[in-house]
């Protein structure tokens, strides 16, 4: 996911920059375009249509959905200055797991990272709230929990681990 996002962003950014570069290089010699307002309308419509498609595709499945079927695989996670407490450290693979994310003090960010260092998902840990997030681990191995909301001087040291069993 991240690499696709990076590639798409860089391409669109480069195209935008090229529009400016081309306009600057034209040196004002381009014909005063009498169809420019038509083009502008075209751009607005194109952005609206692309937006509609991207929005509906990206939200068709609600990204934060938590299914009732997963309720038996519940893990309680608590963040505090500056530690993570997690009540199960060995989790099954290929099954939806629901994390109940709590905080003992300030806001923290529950982030889960795989062995190659890629962030898989995250959820805020808010005072006074229990935030639930669901994930299916399809690979066994060691996973790290990091903090993704600034919480004070040892924020970068709030790291713990859990494993996903081979079977």
């Amino acid at each position: 996911m991240q690499m696709i996002v990076l590639a798409v962003s860089l391409v669109l950014m480069a195209l935008t920059a090229l529009c400016f570069a081309a306009a600057i290089r034209s040196g004002g010699s381009a014909r005063p375009a009498d169809r420019s307002e038509e083009r502008r309308r075209g751009l607005i419509w194109a952005m609206l249509v692309v937006g509609l498609v991207v929005t509906s595709v990206s939200l068709r499945e609600w990204p934060h959905s938590v299914s009732a079927a997963a309720a038996d695989q519940t893990v309680n996670v608590t963040g505090g200055q500056w530690f993570w407490e997690i009540d199960k450290t060995e989790l099954p693979r290929d099954r939806p797991i629901v994390f109940n994310v709590h905080t003992a003090d300030v806001t923290h960010g529950f982030g889960v990272v795989n062995e190659s260092g890629r962030l898989l998902f995250q959820m805020q840990a808010m005072p006074g709230y229990v935030n639930r997030v669901q994930y299916v681990f399809d690979k066994p191995g060691n996973y790290r929990v990091i903090c993704l909301e600034y919480c004070g001087v040892a924020h970068h040291d709030m790291i713990t681990e859990f494993t996903v069993a081979a079977n």
Binding site: M1, Q2, L59, H64, G111, L120, F121, Q122, L148
Partner: peptide, 9 residues
Amino acid sequence: IVVNKVMHN
């Protein structure tokens, strides 16, 4: 939201 899940913060 889907991108934010892995890019936020």
